[in-house]
């Protein structure tokens, strides 16, 4: 009975793991659609707030375009690129979801640009900045609008950071710069041919 120790110790461990795995699989089945919906919802509301006037967003799924946007954004992550189309179906601008680095973790934000490459609006999708300090980038209502109307990364660099939230505001600024760089690489049609 040389094997018995493996069975004596291994079997309880195996049973516990199987039960735990099954329990998690069940929980996941219930929560996965909900989690997916929450993520979509957060992106949708953030994007809606930065939409060029009278336009609708359409996600860009072309891998080449996304790769181009990512290359232009450098070390800032690009989570998604959206093409804005006006009522006539003409390109009206671009929406970019970026994940910049803040003080407390990634700052996910949506940046909308109009057909001239000017920033229409910036919103924060999610972030983990220190409440009362880094969170001023959202609480200080005058901060995010400072980026509106800028049309180049150089201009964005000149936006003042908030006292006490230097790293957080720098993170937001980096995100906007990345979105502007992505726009510069893609053009108004959101990359490739305008349909």
């Amino acid at each position: 009975m040389r094997d018995s120790i493996y069975i004596r110790l291994g079997l309880p461990l195996l049973v516990v793991c199987v039960v735990a795995g099954a329990g998690l699989a069940v929980t996941w089945t219930f929560t996965a659609p909900k989690i997916e919906a929450q993520a979509r919802e957060a992106e949708r509301t953030s994007l809606a707030a930065v939409r060029p006037a009278a336009a609708t967003f359409e996600a860009v799924t072309d891998a080449g375009t996304l790769a181009k946007a990512r290359a232009a954004a450098g070390d800032i992550g690009v989570d998604g690129v959206f093409r804005a189309l006006d009522a006539a179906g003409q390109p009206a601008g671009v929406g970019v979801l970026v994940a910049s680095r803040g003080y407390g973790g990634p700052i996910r934000m949506a940046v909308g640009l109009d057909r001239n490459g000017k920033v229409v609006g910036v919103t924060i999708v999610s972030m983990a900045e220190t409440p009362g300090l880094g969170s001023k980038v959202v609480d200080d209502k005058s901060f995010l609008p400072r980026f509106n109307g800028l049309d180049s990364a150089d201009a964005a660099k000149k936006v003042d950071t908030i006292t006490g939230a230097t790293k957080s505001s720098r993170g937001v600024r980096k995100g906007v710069e990345a979105a502007l760089a992505a726009y510069a690489a893609l053009g108004v049609a959101g990359g490739g041919s305008a349909k």
Binding site: L24, I35, Q38
Partner: peptide, 10 residues
């Protein structure tokens, strides 16, 4: 993990 998934979803 159950808590994690539930909080994330709800």
């Amino acid at each position: 993990t159950i808590v994690d998934l539930v909080l994330k979803g709800y």
